[in-house]
Write a protein that binds this DNA or RNA. Structure first.
Length: 409
RNA sequence: GUGGGUAUAGCUCAGUCGGUUAGAGCACCAGUUUGUGGCACUGGGGGUCGUGGGUUCGAACCCCAUUACCCACCCCA
């Protein structure tokens, strides 16, 4: 038997596909109310796009990409995240030359070649939003509030963590300061932290090794080393969230995994879903558009990991709906089939193609969760009528076939 | 890439000390009711015990290998 590849999942049955659609529908509705427009970008992109945006130093680019040479000898890979492609599209369409704020949302597959575990797959799905051309920190607050609204609408409890990662004016100096600090402690640090010192030093501060954590109590934090503008924006963001009743905590150790983030960084976490607790993450990336050869354009975005919240989604109970049509003898099947096509102009209709007893049809209709079970037996066929039963109210009646559609309205 | 766990019916799982025909619940099908669903009762179908080798008179059970899945680390949504 051929099975799905490791880390790839089918979404069907057990309400899984219903959950997926319910989530996308809900998130889309909220995003549209905030003025976001749908964007669809390719799942396959030139490898260079991700090397330049996500960053060579990240694990994602370093070892998790589905990368290959295609038949035209292009170096390509399946997208490991969504932002890079949207930015590429934004620049390619030359939207960076128009002085206008643009807001996009998307959802779709992302691919990372990782060892699967709870909440982590090789093909997973994200719902993401990206805003271009707005540097005002009000937009940072706006996005966090919108994201919170999406989760609240879905009834998903969450905690919000925020941090500021600084900008090109303050990050280099802070980074030097931190590396110097780590160097001074290097005899006491674990191998992972020594590696992080080189690749992404801020991440070391979040090390779970007790001996490392002890070393970091008096470590310099980015939040205390921001330039005036970044510090002011961060203060304003906190005030805005307070004024809009958004509960959050400042996590000075919060780093985003991708190199392109600047200033505001945030993460939504859940304590109900296992070790991979981040259900959404995002932040500002004011430099990325110019990294990808666009005109300098401030930008901010986030992505929700759909599989991460799958267990938390509760689809509202649906009631019986739709019509089930069946025939009790072969002679009536064609009539039923044709009737179904007509009814489908404004009804959901399923047709059973085999002749069976009334009981059989009722059972089928019940399993299909149809509201109406309508059957043509010999009596009805000869009389030009159809027997109709409402499976919820249990009312039944026999009507002229021609009058059937009218009585449904 | 590293570590741990698991693998028996469509699903969730029992299976004793290695011993005869491998079980249960749910699901499915049929009957109780020859034109009335859900509920109930009765009956039924369904298994390469992940795969390959080994030990043994005898293996679902013990040993080795292998694959897959799960969980965790790393990292990330």
């Amino acid at each position: 038997m051929i099975k799905a590849l490791r880390g790839m999942k089918d979404i069907l049955e057990s309400d899984e596909s219903a959950k997926f659609q319910y989530f996308v529908k809900t998130a889309t509705a909220v995003a549209e109310r905030y003025g976001f427009e749908y964007i669809e970008t390719p799942k396959l992109e030139e490898t260079a796009l991700f090397k330049r945006s996500v960053g060579e130093s990240s694990d994602i680019v370093g070892k998790e990409m589905y990368q290959f040479i295609d038949k035209g000898e292009n170096d390509v890979c399946l997208r490991p995240e969504g932002t890079a492609g949207v930015v590429r599209a934004f620049v390619e369409k030359k939207l960076d030359r128009i002085d206008q704020t643009r807001r996009f949302f998307y959802h779709g597959s992302m691919f990372r070649y990782e060892r699967p575990q709870k909440g982590r797959l090789r093909e997973f799905h994200q719902f993401g939003c990206e805003v271009f051309g707005e540097s005002n920190v009000l937009e940072d607050a706006n996005l966090i509030i919108m994201l919170s609204t999406i989760f609240n609408t879905l009834g998903i409890s969450h905690q919000i963590q925020i941090n500021s990662l600084g900008c090109p004016k303050c990050i280099p100096a802070y980074r030097e300061k931190l590396v110097a600090f780590l160097d001074s402690k290097k005899e006491h640090l674990c191998d992972d932290c020594l590696r992080r010192k080189e690749t992404n030093p801020i991440r070391a501060l979040d090390c779970k090794t007790i001996t490392c954590a002890e070393q970091y109590v008096d470590a310099p934090f980015i939040t205390d080393n921001l330039c005036d503008e970044c510090a002011a924006d961060f203060e304003r963001l906190k005030t805005l969230l307070d004024h809009n009743n958004i509960a959050y905590t400042v996590n000075k150790k919060l780093v985003r995994g991708l190199d392109y983030y600047t200033k505001t960084a945030f993460e939504f976490v859940s304590d109900e879903i296992g070790a991979q607790s981040a259900i959404a993450g995002g932040g500002r990336y004011d430099r990325l558009v110019e990294f990808l050869e666009g005109r300098p354009t401030p930008a901010i975005g986030f992505a929700i990991g759909i599989e991460r919240i799958f267990d938390l989604i509760k689809v509202p109970e649906g009631s019986r709906q739709g019509i089930y049509l069946g025939a009790m003898d072969e002679a009536a099947i064609d009539t039923v089939f044709a009737k179904a096509q007509a009814l489908r102009r404004n009804h959901t209709v399923t047709v059973d193609y085999s002749a069976r007893g009334l009981k059989g049809h009722l059972k089928q209709a019940d399993k299909a969760e149809a509201r109406i079970c309508a059957v043509i037996g010999e009596t009805e066929r000869l009389a030009g009528t159809i027997w109709v039963k409402d499976l919820e109210t249990k009312e039944e009646q026999t009507v002229a076939l021609d009058a059937f559609q009218g009585m449904l309205a």
